[in-house]
Design a protein around this nucleic acid. Structure first.
Lengths: 138, 138
DNA sequence: ACTTAATAGTTGTATAGCAAACTAAACCGG
DNA sequence: CCGGTTTAGTTTGCTATACAACTATTAAGT
């Protein structure tokens, strides 16, 4: 009924992908949102919380909550910025460092599976389209 | 950092679109999920709850909760099926019927705006890609 | 008929997300 | 250096969504 609706199709696809990625990160006890945020932090240790939020295009309040979760799992710690007392630097813990390769490789596996399922060109065209629309609207 | 990631781009786009549609339906006191479900029910009055869920590709429990919301707003009512006592037929109320045109036209407006923003071909290509990927994966 | 399956819907629990209101720190004009 | 403004992060309250466990009803097999 909503075949031509961008919203409907996009949210529906998002739910499907959410399931895939939830399964992929389950072995680590991480949700997709947690895992992606951790990947950002592992990539750029010491990023400010606001930078993490911007990188992921989520609101500050959502970042607060997701980081609370990662902190409870002892995967990150928050350090008060020295120059600016409002800012928080986000650092991965030693435990997080040991997970890094596994998480990245689990991510790679999912992508590989999706590419196989869709064929590489279809996958890449879809990503390109979605990314470009997203960029235009944001 | 996740430019090539289908999950990341899709969920990000979904959030952007969610904002658009939230604003569009706000005048009616409806959330996008509620409004879309109501549109399904107005299109096929008397659908079974399970059919509504399937049409929208959401789980039964999510359908239960969204319908709870619509019922509280007195926009739908549930009627026990006569042939099968487990089933519930979902019927729009008189009040819902009066909203029908307005909701459909608000939807049309958003789509029109997005098409203008992206250009019609880009919009349509994006919808087609997303819909086709979704269909393949689900 | 009786027991066992399957099916429709609900409820409990959990995460993700947003907006708006809030706190605390820093900045800026005079 | 004081008062107003901006900025970083948190809290609160809400919706959407899923999964798993539950109830109630129907269907099926013997």
């Amino acid at each position: 009924m909503f075949d031509q609706c961008l919203y409907f199709n996009t949210t529906a696809l998002a739910r499907v992908l959410e399931r895939e990625w939830t399964a992929a990160f389950k072995p680590f006890g991480l949700t997709p949102a947690q895992a992606f945020m951790l990947r950002v932090i592992l990539e750029k240790p010491g990023s400010l919380q606001s930078e993490v939020a911007r990188e992921m295009t989520i609101t500050r309040s959502t970042a607060t909550r997701t980081l609370d979760g990662l902190q409870k799992l002892k995967l990150i710690e928050r350090r008060t910025g020295e120059r600016d007392g409002r800012e928080l630097e986000i650092h991965p813990t030693a435990r997080a460092l040991t997970l890094r390769e596994q998480i990245n490789s689990a991510s790679g596996e999912v992508t590989k599976r999706l590419k196989k399922s869709l064929s590489v060109p279809r996958f890449e065209e879809a990503v390109a389209k979605v990314a470009s629309v997203r960029k235009s609207l944001e």
